[in-house]
Amino acid sequence: MHAFEYHRPASSKDAVSLVSKKPEGRYLAGGQSLVQAMKLRLSSPSDLIDLSALKDLTGIRTSGSTVEIGAMARHAEVAGSAEVKKAIPALAALAGTIGDRQVRHMGTLGGSLANDDPAADYPAAALGLGATIHTNKRKIEADKFFKGLYETALEPGELITSVSFPVPKRAAYMKFKNPASRFAMVGVFVADFGGKARVAVTGAGPSVFRQAEMEKALSAKFAPDSVAGIKVKPDGLNSDLHASPEYRAHLITVMARRAVEAALK
């Protein structure tokens, strides 16, 4: 790890102001991706601005139609939250499958979305539920947030403060794990908003994406058979040691069908 300066501001305002003065600085949320990258010297920020003291970035609030979760909410917190389990059980379940127990105690919602790892789980929930990402400057629709490989709509220094997830009628997330890393090789989040369905796929492309054909079919009828026959095109899907584009394409259909089955249970 290269040397850096460490800061722990007491407020979001201070954090944003600090980072504006440090063009090579980075926010540090849970650190479960960033610290790893720094250890391998793949990332070398000049400054780390630790967000762990920012009380305004914590907490889980439910209104009738949305669940709003603070950006610094740890995965374990979301997974164990009675409110989230009640409102959007699929979201709590998804959080409970991220990484491993130890990672879930540190990793945060905001950190995961800002990092936009192509195989991360939270982006699938954000896009699959049509979430709104709140930052210190604005609100960004999930549809406009994920831009590409490790690339989001966030501007330099922009800080995610919370995320609002609309409560669906039913939803589920099904993931096929990379056997080694345990990240999603293919993860599919399906949500039924009553006549309008959303399907988000992670792990399979450069960034999370929606599957229009499946959405259309599920919007017409939210049933396993609606997606079971859909053949996904492998073009543009990720290829690595563990899965070819063809295999990933196949898994998208299988995971989507299983997710619908789970949502209906």
């Binding site: 610290v35 130890q102 105690h105």
Partner: peptide, 24 residues
């Protein structure tokens, strides 16, 4: 951050001590 040999409890919760800087 795969092997977990560095696991300690921080405020009662298991974390990987190789995955955070000491200041955290």
């Amino acid at each position: 951050a795969q092997c977990g040999a560095c696991t300690v409890l921080m405020n009662g919760k298991a974390i990987k001590s190789c995955s955070i800087v000491a200041m955290q």
